[in-house]
Simulated assay, not measured.
Amino acid sequence: MIRVLLADDEHMIRAGVRAILSTDPGIEVVAEAADGREAIDLALAHRPDIALLDIRMPRLDGLSAAAELRRVLPETAVVMLTTFGEDEHVHRALAEGADGFLLKAGDPRELLTGVHAVAGGGAYLSPSVAKRVLGRLGPERLSRAEEARRLVDALTPREREVLALLARGLPNAEIGRRLFLVEGTVKAHVSAILVKLGVDNRVRAAIVGHEAGLG
């Protein structure tokens, strides 16, 4: 069972997200918060597998809450809820160690897919979010793509295969099934990929993969 903490200051949004999550028997919403400070308190009390955080919240915004959760409860994965108008916050969220980004107005199936991917040790970026984040790079995009391809070229063929699947948001177990590898071997490849790409989490690795044309 994947235990989820849901934090959003809008009751209707929380109700909608909870309704979507409740359609999956493998997911349980264990607590709901209306602001970032309450989210941290409830996370410490319930120890959820995933904290699903709105970016804009009173008292403590989702980005600050994500940073605090990383410090006090590193075993809880953090997934940010975003809208198209909040893309400028994505890079800060990456720096805070977020494991995923989901659109409030996205396909409900993406919400379920993203929760399962992150719970399984993966990273998940809504395809629309990834496209817009890369699109916002503007003139920098070409040089970033060239740098990403240079970094990816330094990976072994197997590591590139793992990165391509990681960039699609797949968890370690699913990557292992597709590549006929045991999960421990996948974890070792992911660790090596992070070192070679010079990044500190799977979401950053996924973005490098997207910039290099993988995923």
Rank of each mutant, 00 (worst) to 15 (best):
V203K: 00
R141F: 04
P139F: 01
L181H: 04
K131G: 12
A192T: 13
D9M: 08
E32R: 06
A188V: 09
A164Y: 09
G198N: 03
R204I: 00
T156I: 01
L60F: 02
A45L: 12
G215C: 12
V115F: 04
D8R: 08
L5M: 13
R202V: 02
A43I: 10
V182A: 14
P108V: 02
H46P: 00
R37P: 10
F84V: 10
L102E: 06
R136L: 12
G209L: 08
P25R: 02
R59P: 00
I175R: 01
E75Y: 08
G106M: 02
L111M: 13
V78N: 10
L163F: 10
R71E: 15
T23E: 15
G135V: 02
A167Y: 09
V30A: 10
E110M: 14
A15I: 01
R132G: 03
G213V: 06
G135H: 03
L69E: 00
V72G: 03
P127Q: 12
V162G: 13
H11R: 14
G169N: 13
E38G: 14
T83Q: 07
R177C: 00
E88P: 11
M1E: 09
S143L: 11
L179Q: 07
G169C: 13
H46M: 01
K196I: 05
L112M: 02
D107L: 07
D24I: 00
